[in-house]
Amino acid sequence: MQKKFYTEDHEWISLDGEIATVGISNYAQEQLGDIVFVELPQIGAGAQQGDEIAVVESVKAASEIYAPASGEVTAVNTALESEPARVNEAAEGDGWFFRLRLSDKTELDRLMDADAYQRYVEGLG
């Protein structure tokens, strides 16, 4: 089973071999409300852990998405361009944003697992 990690900025990342899939957490989509636009990165773009890499816009406001780990973008979820509401419907499934070929898997050790993230979110009140 693939292990999923979370950032304090509410991205999730799930590693399968060398390739990780990235999206925003269900908690994040609930907080943002109706998603109306997602700006995805270019395939081939490189990012360092913590870099601004995508943007998600709700009716009200735009929010930056940060790379949960360093790597190169290998795929983007083009379905979100026409159906951004998929993020609301399945933030941690069909509503994924992009895939990364990680340059340093040990960076994931700095992130939270599902239990730790759950406690983190509860602490946000």
Partner: peptide, 12 residues
């Protein structure tokens, strides 16, 4: 209130 459980799109 910014929105209720229905959300901004549905309320609109």
């Amino acid at each position: 209130p910014v929105h209720y459980p229905a959300g901004i799109l549905k309320e609109h």
